[in-house]
Design a binder for these strands. Sequence first.
DNA 1: TAAATTTACGGAATCGTTTTCGGGAACGAT
DNA 2: ATCGTTCCCGAAAACGATTCCGTAAATTTA
Lengths: 344, 344
Amino acid sequence: MKFEAVTIKDIAKALGISTSTVSRALRDSHEISQETKQLVLECAERLNYRPNPIALSLKEKRSRSIGVVVCEISNTFFSQIINGIESISYDRGYNVIISQSLESYEREVMNLQYLSSRSVDGLLISVSTETNDMSHLKALHEKGLPIVFLDRITDEINTHSVIIDNFKGAYEATEHLVLSGYKNIAAIANSEFLSITNERLAGYREALLAHGITPDDTYIKHCFYGGMDFNEVEEAVNKLFTHKNRPDAIFTTSDKLTTGCLKTLHRRGVRVPDDIGLVGFSNSDIAELLNPALTVVRQPAREMGQQATELLLQLIESKRPVKQFEKRVLSPELHIRASTLPKW
Amino acid sequence: MKFEAVTIKDIAKALGISTSTVSRALRDSHEISQETKQLVLECAERLNYRPNPIALSLKEKRSRSIGVVVCEISNTFFSQIINGIESISYDRGYNVIISQSLESYEREVMNLQYLSSRSVDGLLISVSTETNDMSHLKALHEKGLPIVFLDRITDEINTHSVIIDNFKGAYEATEHLVLSGYKNIAAIANSEFLSITNERLAGYREALLAHGITPDDTYIKHCFYGGMDFNEVEEAVNKLFTHKNRPDAIFTTSDKLTTGCLKTLHRRGVRVPDDIGLVGFSNSDIAELLNPALTVVRQPAREMGQQATELLLQLIESKRPVKQFEKRVLSPELHIRASTLPKW
DNA sequence: TAAATTTACGGAATCGTTTTCGGGAACGAT
DNA sequence: ATCGTTCCCGAAAACGATTCCGTAAATTTA
């Protein structure tokens, strides 16, 4: 703020003592007498003194802030994550600097550079869909910046991470489709660069195999930008509909893909689930209100944010270098609704 | 970050010149020779020098960051606003510190205190539903902190604000109901403390009057916490259903209230629009996919965030104190869909 | 040629805070 | 009376950058 703030100098001057004494008194140092402490405290109170965090940051080389990089804030899944991050960091006296990559590698790199120059004490990141090369993150990590990965992780960097059991979520969703009588189950997935994509597709394939269905890769469509561009989803759906053996169900692996897919089906006048079943990953809190009520795999996003933040703060505040890293795996929940009604 | 960053001292030492020269060379000062500038620039590039924003903040008494207070990040309307805020501030080299009040006055005050101690250069705020007393904001404003209000504004502080034409949005929605043949139109609104509530209810009443219907205040239900607690909405709907003259349409004044209302209706097994029509303010991007497709008043949230940020940066970077303040009023859009099908 | 001006740079203060170092005073022990 | 402690406190450096002020050398002007 522009206006003159009260500093320890003002207190020192008012009391006719040195700034060192004031500083020590405020920090309750043992080498300051009770009376002096009392005086300083009263004076600080009276002048409404607030320590300057900027000066502290400069001195202590820590900013009490953590950086967050997600692809898009207004995506429900990520805003719930941020909600969780904020809830923990608020209590612990850290502030959160949020930036979004918009699924662009270039922007992710710029954000990271910016955050590191702002001296964030740690980083929570869910990598962008374009991110194949991790060297920018590796460099920061090797320099000592604590990092925790969220949802979209990488093996290339050895640190904490918080994910959900993607395999299980996809397996259960797919199995549910099979058990409901769907035979030709297609999948619309994110970029192959992402960890979540491969894990979810693995669960999808495994569930099919477990029920005697041979996975058919022509049933799998990737949306490189995860549906940031609606046309991507539309095109994926169109391709599935021109498949020689049209699928009778679609499994979508992310929030945007799920709603994008439903939107496309609506526009084509396709009835769900009569013409085609639909189940997808989604954290929308109105999935039950959709037409039809959507069967979804829901991720505990808020909790993911909270746990990731706890791990990060633990990393930041640890005295000795942490060598043992945790990969926390939370469970997704399958909510069965009308979009996957049994075929009989 | 903990690790040693490259400073101008390092450059100075490497080149055997003073830090002042380095600083001036980097800022392209006229009193440095071309050759020296060249040398410094090359060296900075080679060492990968990044200016330390913390040191700059301390020196210049500005942090190049702006504070944002909204009630809830994961509310679509606000996350879209934040998206807009971020898009502008990113380009202008400011970072954004986000905090949420969760509709609590107490938390709003704490957030504000925190942000001000972090030396934010300016503030964007949409006040919480509990906020009746503006003295905490007034104090900051009088100290010289630039503030811009967003959506939920107050007359008590003279500064820029960005809102939508709430009267118009509500008027058009209500009129649309009337023209579609609905007779007994109820309203579920936010706390009476909020500017938006009164403006929207005024539009609602005026539209009724304009069409020869006398507004009936027993048709108006308030949800103090704006539906943060789902029970609130449920109770409001229940009360309307036990009204001696059951309404045949409901107008809801905010995102959460709209989806909450639809959810309640679903649970009660009420058919929309056959049993009751529904139109509400909402920024959900899947309103068209709802059951039924919802008629909504949509606010240009992203643009609101952008314009508010532009106004704020203008305030922050203005040389002389700004005396003339703007109230930017954007237009909402009525999207007519199935939830308000004509009665004939 | 002497004086005045410009050019190009270094020294040091500054922002607000913490912290190291050092030292005076009071006290008890010898 | 002298020495060693302990208790309180101040001076100054440090964090990284900018900037005012001073100044030697080079250049222009009279």
